[in-house]
Amino acid sequence: MSSISVAMTVNGTRVSESVPARTLLVQLLREQLGLTGTHVGCDTSQCGACNVLVNGRAVKSCTMLAAQADGAEVLTIEGLESDGQLHPMQAAFKEHHALQCGFCTPGMVITAIDLVANDANPGEATIRKYLEGNFCRCTGYHNIVKAIAAGAEAMRS
């Protein structure tokens, strides 16, 4: 089996691992690094449960080889808190009951943060459109949309 060495920064920590070449970024995160907050919900690159930020952009970590992330800065759901405080987007999700089973939640929060980086004050239609790559089966998105608007506001202030 063909192995490669990869090195990257994950949630602010330098990591380097030797993995089979066919290792996906999500497998590196979950299986090698124990960062199980990033989930896998589909195999067609659609559901978004695996979304993480790579160099500041939301990507599907199930559709990226670990090798492609060599040298990158990766931020996962585990890296969002600071000083034990929830990120404003995490806090908004809690306040607005934007999660039920919690499985899609990490990917949702990552996408929301990515959206706000592109649009600091997104309206409802923009939010709904930007969630095209994130499936939730529990909430009907109603509260997720509200939470993202509130989280964006909190991130502005």
Partner: peptide, 8 residues
């Protein structure tokens, strides 16, 4: 695609 696909 979607935002994540467009990023890659």
């Amino acid at each position: 695609g979607d935002p994540q696909v467009r990023n890659r």
